[in-house]
Nucleic acid binder design. Structure first.
Lengths: 341, 341
DNA sequence: TTGAAAGCGGTACCAC
DNA sequence: GTGGTACCGCTTTCAA
């Protein structure tokens, strides 16, 4: 059933039917009712392809997600981010076009989306420190929102979780428990979020008059194996950290394994806080996590990002939006480990 | 730059230009070259909205992914599956429309996609034992491929990883190492894959003349907390399992925590094999995982699913496709744990 | 308040 | 081999 047929069956013009269905004010209320009823009865759904052509809007938002060069896998935090964004899109009648490309082919993907008009805007995730995508998207004039920040001097809209504050807090928390030797297993420090986490870590350590040490810090792509090796080597040092901050749930799995390998127990022999996309625990003594930066925080950020991006699309010349999204940090019972130093 | 302008700039008709660009045979080679060159120069990209309307094809495949009722999160294995599918879509010039809806609202999503013609086909994931989606999609005539199987008697196309065989193998492996008491922390047994895994487990246990025990088996939504509680309770039993099969990477995190809580070491005090979407380890003595059912296996399945679905769309009345996709099981060094019983 | 008709930007049939 | 033109199904002027 298409508009034409529906109109004929009602003895009305396509114009009127279209107007009735789309809530235009100039339609007589009685007519609208009649049209609506008929549409429901016939399960009429306007053809989205036709509508998109006619309106010039794609009613679609693009997400370009890259697989990593090494593992060719997708970072699972995208799933949580998408969960949040997807809900908002559904509510606002936007479709989500997901483009999964190998790292390095993003530019092509964006250019294509812009050129063939399949999206009205794009979400940019995991920005690098100097990210070329921002200039690119400005150049091609595609509305976009960055989840995260870069050190670009250009002005653009972004929403970021508070990486610096979170890692600063987490490190202070450990120090206040008595730890003097903190390790950091960080993400790739060419990515902006990893730099900020590092900054938060450094800041807390310095504020408490402690020192960072190169052999207590690693940075790299956050695989399980990376976490394993990093923790294994760090913990094997004669002078080892007594607490470690881990920047990823996947790496954290490896960290746990490395600890188990030594016959050690997390929270007793070494403290661990993981962050990012994860459920994280300082102590293991019960069901209640002591320190949590949850997956739901990423989801919430995804939802808010979607809202902002849709606004940006609807009002293209509104000013840029900059939002710092608080990470939900839950500090529970202070049953954390005693310092071992 | 649109087709009309491009044609004018070349002094040709839209028809010819369109034909040249789309590789129709009746265009003179020289003309084609000229058109192609001009198109490249102008960075011409056909407007996808117009093309979709004209051809009647959406060149888009829909994935409806649900958030769980409890956690409102997306299962991270979808990310790996999507990574595989996405590559194929990109290669075949299909877009991926991702619809994220709360559990229970899938039907609406499918109906809408079908009615407004935004997709040419859909991928169905995580089928339940009696899944209503199959009848629905047949009714509305949308091509679809199921990743997994149901116990429906209808005939439909599916690709499944070999859940039964994998869990059977894994259980036998443990038994052959000397274990006599196996535990199973399974997914929700209203989902088909969980049932099959259970079947494989039961089968191996029975084949070796052992017994399953109700208090060594749990089933439920695969959260970290679920894994934690299941393992904690199981391991606290006076007569406890010496080895556990875990059906999910997320739950496995909780399992590891429960083991650490007891001051135990995985691979020494208890053996664990996790499956599904994960890197999994029987022993922890080195860098080389002993037993792996990798995330890349899910990715590979995603790619193959995409290929099949595209074929299905292109040849609508071809026979149904049924494929069992082997899970990559890597059995490495037999440095597994000694039985503790 | 309603309707006729001109797009939107391509594709594909039919004639030359 | 190339071009004219009627679609695809909707939105949106403009006129009545």
């Amino acid at each position: 059933m298409n508009l034409k047929e529906l109109a004929q069956s009602l003895g009305l013009s396509q114009t009127t039917v279209s107007r009735a269905l789309n809530g235009y004010p100039e339609v007589r209320e009685e007519t609208r009712q009649r049209v609506q009823a008929a549409a429901n009865r016939a399960h009429y759904q306007p053809n989205s392809r036709a509508r998109r052509l006619a309106t010039g809007r794609a009613m679609t938002i693009g997400h370009v997600v890259t697989t990593t060069r090494k593992t060719e896998m997708v970072n699972p935090i995208f799933a949580d981010f998408l969960a949040g964004a997807g809900e908002v899109y559904a509510r606002e009648d936007y479709d989500l076009l997901l483009s999964i490309v190998p790292a390095g082919q993003e530019e092509r993907a964006y250019r294509q989306m812009a050129a063939n008009g399949s999206v009205d805007g794009v979400m940019v995730q995991s920005p690098r420190q100097h990210d070329t995508r921002i200039a690119l998207l400005k150049e091609i004039g595609l509305p976009f929102l960055v989840h995260g920040r870069t050190s670009s001097s250009d002005s653009y809209s972004w929403l970021d979780v508070s990486n610096t504050a979170t890692f600063d807090q987490a490190a202070r928390f450990l120090i206040d428990l008595g730890h003097r030797k903190l390790g950091l297993i960080n993400g790739p420090e060419e990515l902006d979020f990893a730099l900020r986490r590092r900054a938060g870590f450094d800041q807390a350590v310095a504020a408490r008059g402690l020192q960072t040490r190169a052999d207590w810090m690693t940075q790299g792509e956050m695989t399980e194996d990376y976490g394993y090796r990093s923790a294994r080597d760090m913990l094997a040092l004669a002078d080892r950290p007594t607490a470690i901050l881990v920047s990823s749930i996947i790496s954290a799995i490896g960290v746990r394994r490395a600890i188990a390998d030594r016959g050690w127990t997390m929270g007793r022999d070494v403290s661990v806080i993981t962050h990012d996309d994860m459920l994280s625990y300082l102590s293991n003594d019960g069901d209640e996590p002591v320190f949590t930066a949850t997956r739901s925080s990423i989801k919430a950020a995804g939802g808010r990002c979607a809202e902002i991006l849709i606004d940006l699309i609807r009002t293209p010349d509104a000013p840029h939006v900059h939002e710092l999204w608080p990470t939900e940090l839950t500090l529970g019972r202070s049953t954390g480990p005693a310092p071992t130093s």
